[in-house]
């Protein structure tokens, strides 16, 4: 299953809700303001690092680049472009957008 998170972890609890529900082995894609969770030095970094042990975490690179954060992408988070976003949706059985 694919979980999509589009909120900054410092503005809303969306990422927490997603991580609490996501089952081991699930994929999480950070898009829009959600990409800030995947940057070094962010207060959510520890949370994300812990999640990496049991989840596949992806970030939408165009959103990361737009926000000037591409240079501080956290290790272990895989950047994808929109084509990669489409592939993630296609290869997972279903997806939930944590709006």
């Amino acid at each position: 299953m694919l979980h999509i998170v589009n909120k900054s972890p410092l503005e809303r609890n969306t990422l927490d809700s997603c991580l609490a529900a996501a089952q081991p082995g699930a994929a999480v894609l950070l898009i829009e303001d959600g990409v800030y969770a995947a940057t070094r030095g962010n207060a959510a970094e520890g949370k994300l690092r812990a999640a990496l042990a049991r989840l596949e975490i992806y970030v939408l690179a165009p959103d990361l680049e737009a926000r000037g954060m591409a240079q501080v992408l956290s290790d272990g988070v895989k950047p994808v472009d929109y084509a990669g976003f489409v592939d993630l949706v296609a290869k997972n059985r279903n997806c939930q957008s944590w709006l």
Binding site: M1, S17, A21, Q23, R93, N94, Q96, S97, W98, L99
Partner: peptide
């Protein structure tokens, strides 16, 4: 939340508003 996550896994479609 974890139990709900398990249920989510079983769905064909999830619509969130």
């Amino acid at each position: 939340a974890a139990e709900i996550g398990k249920l989510m896994d079983e769905q064909d479609v999830l619509l969130s508003f």
